[in-house]
Amino acid sequence: MDKAELLEVVKDLATEVTASETNADEAATRALRAELDASIRAEAPLTELGWDSVRLTWLLVRIEERFDIDTSTLSLYDLFTVDDLLVELKERIEAR
C-alpha cells in the first residue's frame, strides 16, 4: 500500500472517529469526509485537522484494528504532520 492509498484509509478512519464522537448522521458524515478531502495536506500539522491527543489516540486505535499492527510504541510526541503519521504507519504495515 503506498502513502496515497494509506492516506485515503486514514481519512476514512478519521471520519469514523469524528462522526462517532459528534454523533454525526449519514449526511454529516459524508460532509465530514468531504471536508477532510478538502483540507488534508501531507505537510499539515495534525492539530490543524482538529485532531487533539484524544482524537489522535482513538484514530490510532482504529488504525491498529484495520491493519492489525501495534501502534502503542508510536509516541504522540513524535507525530507532527500527516506525513509523519503516514511514514510511521507504512513502516509498521510493511513490517507485519
Binding site: 500539522p45 495534525l46 492539530t47 485532531w51 507525530l79 507532527f80 504532520t81
Partner: peptide
C-alpha cells in the same frame, strides 16, 4: 505538560 510535536507552537 510536554507539548505534542504537532502542537509545539501552542
Amino acid at each position: 505538560p510536554p507539548p505534542l510535536a504537532s502542537a509545539v507552537e501552542r
